[in-house]
Design a protein around this nucleic acid. Structure first.
Length: 392
DNA sequence: GGCAGCGTAAACCTGCGTGG
DNA sequence: CCACGCAGGTTTACGCTGCC
């Protein structure tokens, strides 16, 4: 049986190191949760054994040595599980980023020991069933050597709902049918966005602006739209090019707030993840291609769609590709077309699914500058060249 | 009421075994 | 081959009981 604490019984201070002195007393409700009727204690005194003691006895007597559980299949051992505030933080994080590896989750919600943290994730998966390990992750060749990928189960969502913390799912990570086929793509969106957000959390001069905040400040018509992230494109871009697409939906949309100087400045970004599946060029402009997408974004910028539709002052397009060659091809495509080259930023990121060794995956995104065609490379974490905007 | 002792729980650690 | 699971151990906090 899991020992699930009711919403009002969570220890708000459970993330602290218990060895460090705690200021004040524990909340009354927590103490109430731990209290047992005196009669029960008297009845059980002397024969009441802890779970771990029982487990030690079982092993000592040679009755049963517990086999290592499969990482791919849920297997309960009836270990007690009391949810903590940190567990809720994990659930909240996984509502924002549908798929994240254990190392990313640890980087966000903390804990002195990553090993111990992974064990906790294992408990939330095996014992509580609060987390899932999506099966698609085991299909890739190196998956066994990589930190496990987690997502929330419905049970985690029920807990969040009980605490009034269940937010709307992010539109680029839909929970609907068919989302499974987009697993690798969705994972890459999550990892790139999470790496960028992680790069900001340790820097007091930076603040990550997530999609819900952008949407909350968008014009009313957009907020009421069933597909607010759709950015409408002109049907006819010029006399010769007609695009089939009526809108572009970025893989991700986020902002960065810079506080390096007294004034706050902002940049907003549309993220495009390219896994090499879409052709860069196509002779037929009606078919989807990377260059058609670039034209669509250029059209959006020229008509200030980002301002009218989302209420954001600027928009840069980040394209993350899987190889240097492909990135170079994309950038040369761009150089053949005049104007607005400064808004397109490129970075080739080595496959995030491959073993990273000692290298921090997050640093691969933060580490280098973003390249531009015909313009100097840009550090998106620095406010140079950044438009200064008043807050709000 | 105050305090010591005990039990429980939840953090932490290192070291080693092992599934796929 | 590597992350994860597990064993064994420590530290800290807190509630309960019994004693003074």
């Amino acid at each position: 049986m899991t020992n699930f604490k009711a919403p009002d019984q969570l220890d708000p201070d459970s993330r602290r190191d218990p060895r460090s002195p705690k200021k004040g007393k524990a909340p009354e409700n927590l103490r109430a949760e731990r209290r047992l009727p005196a009669a029960s204690i008297a009845a059980y005194r002397g024969m009441w054994r802890t779970f771990s003691a029982l487990r030690h006895d079982a092993i000592a007597s040679g009755m049963e040595h517990r086999k290592r559980r499969s990482r791919m299949k849920r297997q309960k051992t009836d270990k007690r599980l009391a949810l903590t505030a940190r567990d809720l933080a994990i659930f909240e994080l996984l509502e924002r980023y549908r798929y994240l590896r254990s190392t990313f989750i640890h980087a966000f919600v903390g804990g002195a020991s990553e090993t111990r943290f992974k064990e906790r994730l294992g408990d939330l998966y095996h014992e509580g069933g609060y987390l899932n390990r999506p099966e698609q992750q085991w299909e890739t060749a190196h998956s066994r050597y990589l930190p496990a990928i987690y997502e929330n189960s419905n049970r985690a969502r029920e807990v969040l709902a009980a605490h009034g913390k269940l937010a709307e799912p992010c539109p680029h990570m839909p929970y609907g049918a068919g989302a499974g086929r987009q697993f690798v793509h969705s994972l890459m969106i999550c990892e790139v966005l999470a790496a960028i957000e992680l790069a900001t959390v340790s820097d007091p001069n930076l603040r990550f602006i997530a999609w819900p905040e952008i949407l909350a400040k968008a014009p009313k018509a957009t907020r009421n739209d069933a597909h607010p992230m759709r950015l409408p494109v002109s049907a006819r871009l010029d006399k010769t090019i007609v695009l089939s697409r009526e809108y572009v939906v970025p893989d991700g949309l986020f902002g960065l707030e810079y506080r390096m100087t007294g004034e706050r400045s902002y940049r907003f970004f549309a993220l495009e993840i390219d896994r090499g599946t879409m052709p860069i060029h196509r002779s037929n402009a009606l078919q989807s291609s990377f260059s058609a997408k670039l034209r669509a974004y250029r059209d959006i910028a020229e008509r200030d769609v980002h301002k009218s539709r989302l209420g954001i002052p600027n928009l840069l397009i980040l394209t993350v590709t899987s190889s240097e060659t492909r990135k170079d091809n994309m950038m040369s495509t761009l150089s053949n077309e005049a104007g607005r080259g400064a808004m397109f930023l490129f970075k080739a990121v080595a496959d995030l699914s491959l073993p990273a060794g000692r290298q921090d995956r997050a640093r691969r995104v933060r580490g280098e500058l973003w390249e531009r065609s015909g313009h100097p490379a840009l550090d998106i974490f620095s406010d140079t060249e950044c438009q200064v905007e008043r807050d709000g």
